[in-house]
């Protein structure tokens, strides 16, 4: 009786595992397929692609790299790309420069008003002035249509600060004590002791901030007027969402409509690829980065 039960259990378990694996496969496919489709379209034959439409998991032969050639020929796209790189590099640097010291100070028990300052910071996660008053602060400070406005938008994140602080708290006090006895000041303790021991959380925060800036479009849309300062996402929006060819006009005037379709896909790949290349490497730290954030501060 008992062994019979066990065998039935085994069979149903095997069926369950197979169904489970299959469903996971379907989910995986759904996550991968759309970008794969974009990639396949981007190297397809432009004429055929414009005619067929629909979904492609195999590129339409004969392959064509005209899309990519065209993308790099367009002034706007190149400008957007360089602007985005500028915003990411300086934005991340500024963000770390503000967030890391703040997290460090608030993780020190010697710092008397730590709790008060923490409440002051965390309150901004619960309540905010909202879109319009924030926009007006930028207007009144004369930041509209400046590159600085984009850097300032992402210069500090309370949420990341809380995550980092939790990470810093995990570093044993004894290390700090001995460094202080050796005459190290706080800046030295932060750079030589705390940061090297919190590499994982710093790496994850850096990646999240960088991806956030790379992918952001809304703040640039409201703060930037001059197309010369636009990040790539705004040009993408013009091509993908508003279906306008304006971004592409400056390039080849005589470009056929079929080439425009191809360019649409190529531009998407060019704008997304850097991120898709980086994230798998930092992936193993995600769990840590996300987990420590959830621990009560």
């Amino acid at each position: 009786m008992k062994s019979g039960n066990k065998i039935r259990d085994g069979a149903s378990r095997r069926i369950f595992l197979a169904v489970n694996a299959f469903l996971l496969g379907v989910i995986g496919f759904c996550c991968l397929a759309p970008m794969w489709h974009v990639f396949c379209c981007s190297i397809s034959n432009p004429g055929e692609l414009a005619r067929s439409g629909g979904f492609h998991l195999i590129p339409i032969a004969p392959f064509s790299f005209d899309g990519y050639r065209a993308v790099f020929g367009y002034r706007n796209i190149l400008t957007g790309y360089l602007n985005t790189i500028f915003y990411v590099v300086f934005g991340v640097a500024l963000n770390l420069l503000l967030t890391v010291p703040c997290a460090y100070v608030l993780s020190r028990k010697r710092f008397l008003p730590a709790n008060a300052v923490m409440m002051f910071m965390v309150f901004t996660m619960l309540f905010s002035g909202g879109l319009i008053p924030t926009y007006l602060v930028f207007v009144k400070l004369g930041l509209i249509d400046t590159r600085l406005s984009i850097l300032l938008c992402t210069a500090f994140s309370t949420f990341n600060m809380v995550i980092l602080r939790t990470g810093f708290l995990a570093v044993p006090d004894a290390l700090e004590e001995s460094a202080r006895l050796d005459g190290a000041n706080d800046l030295q303790i932060l750079v030589r002791i705390i940061l090297p021991l919190s590499k994982a959380s710093v790496a994850v925060i850096t990646l999240f901030v960088a991806v956030g800036i790379w992918n952001s479009w809304f703040t640039s849309a409201i703060y930037l007027l001059d197309r010369g300062k636009w990040p790539i996402q705004l040009f993408l929006r013009e091509v993908l969402i508003n279906n306008s060819q304006k971004s592409l006009e400056a390039g080849v005037k005589a470009s056929a409509e079929s080439l425009a379709t191809l360019v649409k896909y190529a531009i998407t790949i060019v704008a997304t690829l850097p991120i898709l290349c980086i994230y798998p490497f930092v992936q193993r730290h995600f769990v840590k980065g996300v987990m420590i954030g959830s621990v009560k501060g």
């Binding site: 420069l97 503000l98 967030t99 010291p101 703040c102 460090y104 100070v105 608030l106 020190r108 010697r110 710092f111 300052v117 002051f120 910071m121 901004t124 309540f127 905010s128 002035g129 909202g130 319009i132 008053p133 924030t134 007006l136 602060v137 400070l141 300032l152 210069a155 500090f156 309370t158 600060m161 000041n185 706080d186 800046l187 932060l190």
Partner: peptide, 28 residues
């Protein structure tokens, strides 16, 4: 802990200007 206070200053100023000033702006 002089240095600790100075290290905190930039982020506090940032939060005051870009988080709390808009809250005051809610008067609008």
């Amino acid at each position: 802990n002089r240095l600790l206070y100075w290290m905190l200053l930039p982020s506090v100023i940032y939060v005051l200007i870009f988080n709390y000033l808009p809250m005051a702006g809610l008067a609008m």
